[in-house]
Every structure is written in C-alpha cells, then in structure tokens.
Design a protein around this nucleic acid. Structure first.
Length: 199
DNA sequence: GACATGATTACCT
DNA sequence: GGTAATCATGTCG
C-alpha cells in the first residue's frame, strides 16, 4: 500500500518521523527497482528548530521545495559528496521535514551493492543517510520529486512498531543548533543492525 | 564575485 | 581516534 499524500500532510512532523519506522521506501530509478525497510529517521521542524534548513522562514533556491505541501522529496548535497534524502511533511508553507538516516535492504540488493561499490552485504550497505541515497540511486536530480508518483515512494506493509522497540535520542551532526541539538527527534529501531553508527 | 562551512563517510595511524 | 575529501549554498562585500 503506497502512502497517500494525506499521510505526509499531517501536522506533527515528530509523529510522522516516528511512524515511518517499519515502512518501506522504494525507488524505481533507471529501470532498477530497489527498496528497504526504514529503521532510522530524524525530524526537522520549521518552527522553533534551529537545526532545520527552513528555520526562521528562510526561502532560497535550496529550501524552496520545503514549502510545498507534504509528500515531496527534499534532496541536497552535503560536504560536497553525499546526497541526503528528506521527506517534506505538513501542509504547504509549514516546511517540516523527515530525514531518512538508515534502511534495511530488501529488494534489488545486487544493484544496491553495485551502486555502493561493494561485493557483499554488510552492515555498512545502507547504515547512514549518505549511504541510503547511494544504494537507492537517489541524487539531487530528484529534488522535488513527488512521493505519490512511481519514481520514489513509501509503502505501508502492515507492520506496526511497538513503542518498546523505538529508541528516541538527540539528532546527529547538528551541534551548531544550540539548545535544539538536544531535542530527542532521532528515532531508531531497537536492536536493528542496520541503523547508522554515528552517535 | 570571494569565502567559509556542513542533516557525512572512508581511510589512515 | 583523527582527519581528508570536495562543492553547492548562504553570507558578506
């Protein structure tokens, strides 16, 4: 079941971030179908969150797509090397986002290995936001792609993650955000070997 | 138009 | 555990 636009347009980005655990992200890029079970996410809120790129209503070429209605991809390049994949949520103008940090590889594993330049499946295949995009074939060319189309989408396969399997902790790599860096907006599946190693 | 830097990862010691 | 790689974006002039 492909998640509909209404799922992404709910108002609470932290709640969406939490509920994306156990969902499946698919890409159909260059004729190759790949997918993975989402095991780690982070929430970024437009309001009261200095770590969010849209903080204080910044509206630039990069953040433009964040202001669209929930259900589009926000992809950008970090450190000149890695594309990071975010899902825009909330209604148009609210500019909330969820970063996909790690997945458990499911479909198209040989293709994901090839894209990563690896020969066998290991924990580092998709454990990290820059690695997920490499494995799935997502690049900045997919900036603004609708998640209700047939290129990148998310499916609910009926799996519900109980609260005791969810670990909430501070987000990674945003020390510059001051007190907001302590918000427990990173969600991981407990005991999953596919979550990212970064603290 | 110049310049500093980051939602990171890989490889070296 | 330390650090180099590498470039689009944002900020300042």
């Amino acid at each position: 079941m492909k998640l509909p636009a209404t799922f992404y347009q709910q108002p609470d980005v932290v709640q969406i971030s939490r509920s994306l655990l156990g969902k499946y992200v698919f890409t159909n890029i260059e004729g190759i179908l790949t997918s993975g079970r989402i095991v780690e996410t982070e929430a970024y809120a437009h309001i009261n969150d200095q770590a969010c790129h849209s903080h204080l209503g910044r509206f630039t070429k990069r953040t433009r797509v964040m202001y669209e209605a929930g259900g589009v991809a926000y992809v950008y390049l970090i450190y000149g090397r890695y594309a990071l994949f975010n899902i825009i949520t909330n209604e148009a103008g609210k500019a909330d986002a969820v970063l996909i940090r790690a997945i458990e590889p499911i479909d198209g594993i040989p293709e994901m290995l090839a894209r990563r330049g690896l020969t066998k499946v290991a924990a580092n295949l998709t454990a990290g936001p820059g690695l997920v995009t490499q494995a799935l074939g997502i690049t900045t060319a997919y900036y603004g792609t609708s998640l209700t189309g047939d290129t990148i989408w998310i499916e609910d396969q009926g799996e519900a993650i109980p609260d005791e399997l969810v670990v909430a902790s501070p987000r990674v790599g945003i020390d510059y955000a001051g007190t907001d860096a302590a918000l427990p907006w990173r969600f991981r599946l407990k005991n999953s070997k596919w979550t990212s190693p970064a603290k």
